[in-house]
Design a protein around this nucleic acid. Structure first.
Lengths: 188, 188
DNA sequence: CTTTCACTATACAGATCGGTATACTTTTGT
DNA sequence: ACAAAAGTATACCGATCTGTATAGTGAAAG
């Protein structure tokens, strides 16, 4: 990716996330990035593609942000589950004031054939898989239901954070996750 | 509200919810409602006001939908909590294929001074109050934490439903709510 | 040395945006 | 019966939308 393309994508990510996809025009993105519209279209081809790369890049950055938290749990699946909530809490505080970008993008896209749809669906499936895998390792035979419960708590916490329903919802969700693990007799 | 205004609001609600607020123009709303743009502006004054009434009306319809479920619980707070999930499950199946309209609208509005903001915030506070009140009655002294946990499960379920993360998330959330109530030693 | 690539600057096209103006007809309440 | 309210139809406004075209600059690579 060229320097101008990087600046354009960075500006697009910030603007799309803060103001919404349809509310942000390509002229504004180009201006904020200090890039001409020609360059923007030479690199990305369309606004739709810019949206796709926005979501894909943000997902990639979230997974990279999460990785060291998971590594620190070192083979303990119960600790790994709590590590996801710890990572989410830090991520939410720093990058996610408006809630989950995937959920927000989904609210603005109606056509299931839109290429962003697949990214959004895949991101949620990856998170569900992560939770169910860890839950299955922590409490054999209960991974499915426990994983889905953790997914609900996690998604709910991101929404509650974005809408400021009450303080520290991700920390609260972590507490409930801990109780679920204890109730399921999870191995440390 | 005049007949044309009712048709216009009904069309606006459907289109805003299905396609998003910024993706829907007033010309389309007027056309789908079989109403001229003049009438639309005579009745509502602006698109912003139409958005406000969309959210306020949907919230009102949800509360009216929920009321008989709560009434059927007849003074049992634990049954009342499960009744909320039962109502949500039915509501989601019939009216909420794209998830929570408040969450989705919030994704498209960046200005906190927008009049829709207050409606969205109030709706979430009302739900949190409902959960904490019922939880406090079901398990005295634990209403706060239990209510917040129920709120997280409920919000997460609506998101998971809208994004089709796994089947019947609201039913799944109901099951987790039941377990939470049992663990808190809730009175029937 | 020259071709290629990344980039700037500016102007424009065609469509759609929210909102208004004009002129007329239909319904409704007293 | 009559006036006010509610409605239709249509044309228009300036702004903004995504996307393209034209012309030229600077640097790097073969």
């Amino acid at each position: 990716m060229t320097p101008a393309a990087r600046r354009a994508l960075a500006a697009a990510e910030r603007l799309f996330y803060e103001r919404g996809i349809h509310a942000v025009g390509v002229d504004l993105i180009a201006a904020e990035a200090g890039v001409t519209k020609k360059t923007l279209y030479d690199r990305f081809g369309s606004k739709e593609q810019l949206v796709v790369e926005y979501l894909a890049d943000r997902d990639e950055r979230w997974r990279a942000f999460l990785a060291p938290y998971l590594d620190a749990a070192e083979g303990s699946p119960a600790a790994g589950i709590l590590a996801v909530f710890d990572a989410s809490r830090a991520w939410a505080a720093e990058y996610s004031a408006k809630g989950c970008s995937m959920v927000n993008a989904h609210a603005e896209i109606s056509d299931p054939a839109h290429p962003a749809y697949a990214i959004i669906a895949a991101q949620k499936q990856w998170m569900l898989g992560l939770f169910t895998d860890l839950a299955g390792a922590a409490a054999p035979g209960r991974g499915g239901r426990l994983g889905r419960a953790l997914m609900l708590l996690h998604e709910g916490a991101l929404v509650a954070h974005g809408l400021e329903v009450f303080p520290d919802p991700v920390g609260e969700a972590r507490g409930e996750a801990e109780a679920l693990l204890a109730a399921a007799g999870a191995e440390g």
